[in-house]
Amino acid sequence: MEHRSLPFTLFIYATALLLAAVILAPLFWLMIMSVSPATQLTAKPLQWWPETFDWSRYQFLLSTVENSAGAAFVASLFNSLKVATMATLVALAVSVPAAWAVSRTPAVGWSLSMVILTYMLPPVALSVPLFMGLAKLQLLNSVFGLALVYLSILAPFTTWLLKSGFDGIPRELEAAAMMDGANLFQTLRIITLPLATPVIATSALFAFLLAWDEFFYALLFTSDLRAKTLTVAIADLAGGRVSDYGLIATAGVLAALPPVLIGALLQRALISGLTSGGVKG
């Protein structure tokens, strides 16, 4: 390691601490709000640490009593889970063959570029026909309809990630298997897919996070607990009609937990996925 002067080292540590504080302070505050008594959150001067820990809001939101506010919240949690899972699985199903095809046959690559270009379209540019189309198919306010729409966001993304993954798997391995008499599907199943498992898993995680985060389509295309997702449920809570700020914070913590846990536990895979595309261009 190169030599560093003491002031510079101190400077490094000081900025590192500052950065950690900037990242963590808002998140900690969200958690503290969720367990602070309501009166303390409107106290002046504001107290930064709860006198007593109040866990009742978690109980309230995760209640399963039929037709309660908690049940509605839990339903939206499950809807998010259902929509994100379905959309991710289907997105992988269409993007694995497509990505492999583009990776091995560059002649069709331009069509993937077209697909990826759709990312530039603002969702509002598609929303009116999608709304009318889903209405005709009776797919408004349905987790299936929403998952279908999400597919159009997830699939280009996973195809793009998977393509760079397949690019890294030597063609020679596939060719050798073919020489041994394996047909295309056997080759893909035995050779390519096992080697691509890490990148497929990463793509699945990204797709899931994207779907979990989506708000605009969910706001337009769902209307009640049959399909309403967590992001919409939280926006409803935050809409200025709930007087207990702690409850809003609690909902936020619960909605953030799955993606943040995924992020924290699988950060190595995520960072490599995030950066590989960026670095390779």
Binding site: I23, I234, A235, A255, A264
Partner: peptide, 24 residues
């Protein structure tokens, strides 16, 4: 550790982030 922390704001759903800052 610090690099691991960086992933947290990114993983936070946009709507939750907005809600959090609205409260702040």
């Amino acid at each position: 550790l610090l690099r691991a922390l960086l992933i947290l704001p990114w993983a936070l759903p946009t709507v939750v982030n907005a809600t959090l800052w609205r409260l702040i």
